[in-house]
Nucleic acid binder design. Sequence first.
DNA 1: CAAAAATTAAGTTAGTTTGTCAACAAGCGT
DNA 2: ACGCTTGTTGACAAACTAACTTAATTTTTG
Lengths: 147, 147
Amino acid sequence: MKLSKKSEYGLRALLELTLAYETSSFVQRQDIASRQNIPVEFLEQVLLTLKRAGLLASRRGMNGGYRLIKPPSHVTLGQVIRILDGPLAPIGCVSRTAYQKCDDCPYAGRPSCPVQQAMGAVRDAIAGILDHYSLTDFAAGARNASS
Amino acid sequence: MKLSKKSEYGLRALLELTLAYETSSFVQRQDIASRQNIPVEFLEQVLLTLKRAGLLASRRGMNGGYRLIKPPSHVTLGQVIRILDGPLAPIGCVSRTAYQKCDDCPYAGRPSCPVQQAMGAVRDAIAGILDHYSLTDFAAGARNASS
DNA sequence: CAAAAATTAAGTTAGTTTGTCAACAAGCGT
DNA sequence: ACGCTTGTTGACAAACTAACTTAATTTTTG
């Protein structure tokens, strides 16, 4: 039930990129890294996967960097975490985005599986929050903080 | 955001022990293991930690085994998972049972930290479900299934 | 061209998960 | 008392994952 550093860094990086979204300018890795206290090289991998997933654009050369290319109100924390950490569900057999049959459970597949019932509720709760939590909402707290 | 095998096996084992609770008889490791399809030696470790945590009693020798010593309605899935997997919170800085200050986050400690706000909501949702989900509730599904 | 910056691939380190093994301790039936 | 059954302990190990590092490459721009 833990969020990886990858996801945490990803969210914190997207925070910076969300704040810079209106200016539609590019932010460089080391700027994000130093502002958010993240190892640059590791951050790079994170930004790259977010780019491949279609959330970011990048430009090389001087004045290059990364930029958010989707409106922050349309990107949810759920999407981001799924990209970086995989499914939100605590167990494969209750995942909606990456369902996988349990191999060893004696109740496998049956709708009355106790594990599925309990963990299904947890999955729905987690997804219910994170899939309705946009980057705009996420950045809202940060703006207040700096004022 | 994943449940470990340890916790999954633990819950499935407790399912068996809950079903046997009224008879107040001891159930042996290999019975639990074969019924639930769990490697015996690994299950042992799980049962042992649950015993040390005060949920189970054991008896050696013939007709020995493990037995649940708390009423199933008083044991929650949240307790069990915390014993086997640690805190439910996705990140240390929002845990109630094992709080830990973030070391690198620029908003560390401030109540307006965006990560804390989002993950705090997730933690509350998870704990809200699992801390009110008793072994009795858990076993309810299994009983219907066999009928 | 030369400097700046992203891109890619690969490797490293450390820790966790999942599982195995062997030796030992305690209880039970005869 | 003896032997069988069962729990107890601790060490170990393979496989995997997380978190980072290094270094070489490619692209863009001034």
